[in-house]
Design a binder for these strands. Structure first.
Lengths: 238, 238
DNA sequence: TAGTGGTCTAGACCACCTG
DNA sequence: AGGTGGTCTAGACCACTAC
């Protein structure tokens, strides 16, 4: 465990537990560096991560401040800029999957391009309805190259990411594309909603720790029911 | 201009111009630091920004690599994780605004909370249809405290951000919330689409360089027509 | 084992806000 | 003018990959 990560976790915890409160500036970087017995640069790296999270912000020449937490309904707000699957987001609720379709086949031209593979490499084609508390929550269509390892229907009942992580594969980078659409036959049937009703679509291309594209997925979410948050922060001096 | 920013811009340009190509690893950090006559840490900071942009990725012990650019249709893909308004995104096209509603009033309770103000502070209430090439592109409802400065109908014809930037106010941080909805009366009328058709909604709370919330806005976009991209990157060693 | 990226330090100087 | 955050350096050591 690196020092800056430890400090990041500790400061985050102190802020969330309201030991450190909005309204009162954080101690200076020098004081915090003394307190944690590290160099100021190491401490600043921890602060940078908190800035990136949108938890604090710094004003050059003035100090570092805690951003007031607006809307504590964050439980229902899913982070769009964190690398994780749908299961992660509802750890406290009962999640399960209903497999609609599963096969191994050759990729399409489009899939070859997105996954950066040749068309003689096989891919898994997976369609699942994700359930939270036995209610349809989202519908996924995922295409994965077979190099990720053996997958069968029983694997799909749970989180694929957990399974892949156990095999040493991590989702470290991703590009997500978001837009609104109307539910087609497949989507409305899988999610038990009306044909043509509004849905949020999230496309994801996932990359592992070696930079390989290993997932090309599309997920559909119900209107208003699922809301996603993105935090934006300009870094460096203003 | 800081060294790491200069190097960041230069490297980005060299990658986009394909002088540096995917497939060929970047020179080592030491070599690049030599080339730019800076310390390795300074160079690494520039690389970190490129990693954050999703342009390159590093593998510890191996090297730094350029991510193949998938889909050069990035012109039509709007970055959701960059702080800017709708006008910025279509600099090369003719953008204009149609002001639907404009007034100065007291804020609602909800607005006081989001904007972190008291209810005796006045706010601007603005509704605009944004046009690109004279076609309705989006519909905005923006609430701003009057401390941002004087705003009138003529200001609203163009980018508010440009105007505010000229007055020393910068949008440096923001929280955006994204979901799908169906067009209500106002939205369908303003965007000239059918009542009930799917739309993408983006809520934004914008913060200036002093950490003040100065904007609470909601924007509606047409189905499929507008697609937004988010890049996600785990930082640090894998 | 050699090479590469990641972390950490001590110290210096600069840019900016606040009195 | 003093204090605070931002940048930059030179050098050291650690973690990981590739051979």
């Amino acid at each position: 465990m690196y020092k800056y990560r430890t400090i990041y976790n500790d400061l985050k915890q102190r802020i969330l537990s309201r030991e450190l409160r909005p309204g009162v500036p954080l101690p200076t970087q020098e004081e915090l560096a003394d307190e944690y017995q590290v160099n100021r640069l190491t401490l600043k790296k921890a602060l940078d991560m908190l800035v990136h999270d949108g938890i604090i912000y710094s004003v050059q020449g003035s100090g570092t401040y805690i951003r007031p937490q607006l809307g504590t309904d964050l439980d229902e707000l899913l982070p769009l800029d964190a690398p994780n699957g749908a299961t992660d987001l509802h750890r406290n609720q009962r999640t399960s999957s209903r497999v609609i379709h599963f096969e191994t086949r050759h990729p399409t031209e489009d899939e070859c391009e997105h996954l950066e593979i040749k068309d003689d490499q096989l891919v898994y084609d997976i369609m699942r309805t994700r359930l939270v508390n036995n209610q349809p929550y989202s519908f996924d269509h995922t295409v994965m190259p077979t190099f990720v390892g053996h997958i069968d229907e029983s694997t799909l009942q749970h989180s694929i990411y957990d399974y892949l992580e156990g095999r040493g594969l991590q989702l470290t980078d991703a590009r997500r594309i978001v837009y609104a659409d109307s539910a087609d036959d497949d989507v409305s049937a899988a999610m038990e909603i009306q044909l043509g009703s509004p849905v949020l679509v999230i496309e994801q291309i996932g990359y592992d720790q070696y930079g390989r594209a290993f997932e090309y997925a599309r997920s559909w979410f119900r209107q208003k029911h699922s809301r996603f948050a993105v935090d934006i922060h300009k870094i460096g001096p203003r």
